[in-house]
Nucleic acid binder design. Structure first.
Lengths: 365, 365
DNA sequence: TTGAAAGCGCTAACAC
DNA sequence: GTGTTAGCGCTTTCAA
C-alpha cells in the first residue's frame, strides 16, 4: 500500500514516528541556507533581503528573491521567535465559542490582530477553571506576546499569576482591578433596561442568569440590577432573581421558571444578564404558557444578531462590539509595547438600548 | 478623556519598541540552563526530567522538580519546535465564525485537538480568497503540523499548493478530490428534505443560497437539489433557485424573495442550503407577507441550536456535528503520522431530518 | 555592500 | 545515571 515505508524485518515494532519523519521522504523544507547557497550569498544577506534591512545591491536582491521563489522558501517562525524573543502570537481565551457574542468578538479580534501582523491562538475553556489554567499554560509555553481574556472563571490565582509574570493581558468584557480592561458599562446598560421597563409601567422586575455566563460579568450585572431598582425605589426580591445551569441539570431552567411564575406575586418583567439567557427565558416562559411580551416583558444584554429576527424581536442592551474589539486590541498592543510598568488602562464603553418586541406594558394595565 | 495616554512633547515619534524590551525591565524568563544551574545538574538531565525520558535517580528528579517550581520554569515551545521539527500546532481555517455551525465545529475541534496535545490556530477568512491565502501562508510559517479547512474559497491554487507541499490537510464539510475529506452526505441530506416536502404534498420546490456560503458545499447541495427533484419527476425551474449576498448589497435578499414570490407560479416550499440561509429566508418571506409554513414551507441544513427554539422551529437536515469533529481530527492526525503517501481517506457522514414547525402542507391543499 | 560568527533554548545521540 | 556536544533555522552584531 505504501511502497516508501521501510520494511522492518525484525520482530520488534518500529517506534512511533512523527509528522515529517514518517513514511515517505521527510518533507524537508528549504532553509535560509538553501537560499543563500543557491544565490551564492551569505545567509545574513538573505535575511536582509527578507526583512528589508541593511543595504543590498539591486542585483543581489533580485537574485535572492529569485532563489526564494524557486525553492518555495518560507521563513521558519520558530527560529525567528527564538532569536527575537517574540512570537507575534496573541492568545485568546474564551468561555464558550458557541455563544454568538463571543464568536463575533473573537472573529473581530482575529481580524484586527491579523491587521497588526499577529496570529491568534484561540482557546475555548467551557468555563472550566482547570481547563482555563491548562490552556493558558499552553499559551505561555508558546510564549504568546499577549493574552486576551474574554472569560475569566474568577479563579484569581490564574490572573494574578499572569500579572505576576508580567504577561500583557487584556480583559475583555470582564473585569479585574490592576489589569487592563475594556468592557461595556454594565451599570449604565442595566439602568437603560430598567428605565425602559419602568417607562412601560413595570414595577415588579426580576433578573435571570444562565450558569454558563462569565462569573465577574454576571456578578456585576446582578449588582447593577439591584442598585438600579433601589435607586428607583423599586422592590428587590431575591426570589425574583433566577438562575439555572442546563449543563449541570437540563431541566433546571424549566423548574426555575415554573417556580417563579406560579407564585402569586410574580414579576411582570425580567432583565436577563445576556441575550443567550434572555432568549432561553422567553422560550421557557412561553413553554409554560406565559406570552411574551403580553404577560412577561424580557430585556436582554449584548445585542447578538439573532435577537434582530422578527420572530425573536428581543429588546436588548447592545454592546458596541466593533469598538470593544478594536479598543481591546489597541490597549493590548500598547501594553505589549510599553511594558508592564506603564499605568493600567481601564475603559468602560457605553451601551445602547434597542427596543424591539419582547417588551411591552405590564398585563394589568 | 484618557489621562493615562503618554503625552508626546517632542515632534518626532519615538521608535516602536517591542514586547519585553520596552519600558521596565525586560521580563527574562528562566531557561533550562537556569534550572540546570540551580539544581546542579546538566541541562540534558533537566530535559530528561521534563520529558520523562532516560533514567534519572529519584533524588535528582526531586531536586530538578523543585528548581523548576522555584524558578517558575516553563519550556519554550519555539526552541523545542525548532529541534523537533514539529510544533504540535494545528491550523483551522474557517470562513465565518459568526455562523453558529462553524463556531460550534471549531469549538469541538479545538477541544479534540487539545485532548491530543495540540493547540489550534484559528483563522477567519470571511470567504475572501486572498485573505485565505495570506492566513494559510502565516500558518505555514508557523510550521503547523496540519491544517483543517472548514472553508475553501474554491481557489484550487491554494489547495493544490498545500497538497504539493505535502502539508497534512483535512477538508471538513467541504470537498476536494485527492485530499482527505470528512463531510456530511449532501445528496442524502437534500433527498431527506425533498422526500419530506413531497410527502407533505409539495411539488413546486425552490432552493435558496446565501452568498456567504462555502462554495464547494454550495455547489454540491445545489446539484443534490436538482438531482433529487429530477429523480422524483419534479420540475426544476432555474428561477426558483434564489441567491443573495447581503455583504455586497443589503437589500439583495429582499429583492430576490419579492421577485420569486410575486410571480404567478411561485414555489410552495424552499430548501435552503444551510440553516443560516433558511432562517433569513423565513424572515424575508414573512416580511413580505408570506406565512411560514402556511404559504411557504422552509427546510434548512446543518441543525444549528437556534433552529430548535420554538419561535424559530426550523425543520432541518441535521449534521452529526460531534462525529464530524472527532472523525476529522482522527483523519488529520493519522495523516500526520502516516505521511503524505498514505492513501487518502474520504468520509461521508449520514445526516438526519429533524421535522419542526417550518414545514407543512402546501397552501392549496 | 557583504560575510563570519555567536547565540536564542531546546533535544537527542553518544560518551563516560 | 549523568554530562558533553552538536545542531534546529534564524537574527544580529561586528569586521572586512
Amino acid at each position: 500500500m505504501n511502497p516508501d515505508r521501510r520494511s522492518l524485518r525484525s520482530g520488534a515494532m518500529p517506534p512511533v514516528r512523527h509528522a515529517g519523519h514518517a513514511a515517505g521522504r521527510a518533507v524537508r523544507r528549504p532553509t535560509i541556507n538553501d537560499v543563500a547557497a543557491l544565490s551564492g550569498v551569505s545567509k545574513s544577506t538573505v535575511s536582509n533581503v527578507m526583512r528589508g534591512t541593511g543595504s543590498v545591491s539591486a542585483a543581489t536582491h533580485a537574485r535572492v528573491l529569485e532563489s526564494i521563489k524557486a525553492l518555495g522558501y518560507r521563513p521558519n517562525a520558530a527560529a525567528r521567535n527564538l532569536v527575537q524573543q517574540r512570537t507575534n502570537l496573541i492568545g485568546v481565551v474564551v468561555g464558550d465559542l458557541a455563544n454568538a457574542f463571543n464568536a463575533e468578538l473573537v472573529k473581530r479580534l482575529e481580524q484586527h490582530a491579523c491587521t497588526h501582523g499577529y496570529t491568534t491562538l484561540v482557546c475555548n475553556t467551557g468555563g472550566h477553571a482547570e481547563r482555563e489554567a491548562a490552556r493558558i499554560e499552553a499559551l505561555l509555553e508558546q510564549r504568546v506576546d499577549g493574552i486576551a481574556l474574554l472569560e475569566f472563571t474568577g479563579d484569581r490565582a490564574v490572573l494574578s499569576q499572569l500579572l505576576a509574570e508580567r504577561v500583557p493581558v487584556i480583559m475583555i468584557s470582564c473585569w479585574a482591578d490592576y489589569a487592563d480592561c475594556v468592557a461595556v458599562d454594565d451599570y449604565a446598560g442595566i439602568a437603560l433596561a430598567i428605565d425602559h421597563l419602568v417607562g412601560l409601567g413595570h414595577s415588579r422586575i426580576g433578573h435571570a442568569i444562565d450558569g454558563l455566563m462569565e462569573p465577574t460579568t454576571r456578578r456585576t450585572r446582578m449588582d447593577a440590577f439591584e442598585r438600579a431598582l433601589l435607586r428607583r425605589g423599586l422592590e428587590v426580591r431575591p426570589e425574583w432573581s433566577i438562575t439555572w445551569d442546563d449543563a449541570v441539570e437540563p431541566t433546571s431552567g424549566e423548574r426555575a421558571v415554573q417556580t417563579l411564575f406560579h407564585s402569586d406575586h410574580a414579576p411582570s418583567a425580567m432583565v436577563a444578564a445576556n441575550d443567550f439567557t434572555a432568549i432561553r427565558l422567553m422560550e421557557l416562559a412561553e413553554a409554560s404558557g406565559l406570552g411574551v411580551p403580553e404577560q412577561l416583558s424580557v430585556v436582554g444584554f449584548d445585542g447578538i444578531a439573532i435577537g434582530e429576527l422578527s420572530r425573536i424581536a428581543l429588546t436588548t442592551v447592545a454592546q458596541p462590539r466593533e469598538e470593544l474589539a478594536s479598543l481591546s486590541l489597541e490597549v493590548l498592543l500598547s501594553r505589549m509595547e510599553q511594558g508592564p510598568n506603564a499605568p493600567s488602562r481601564q475603559h468602560r464603553l457605553q451601551p445602547s438600548l434597542i427596543v424591539r418586541g419582547s417588551t411591552g406594558p405590564p398585563p394589568s394595565g
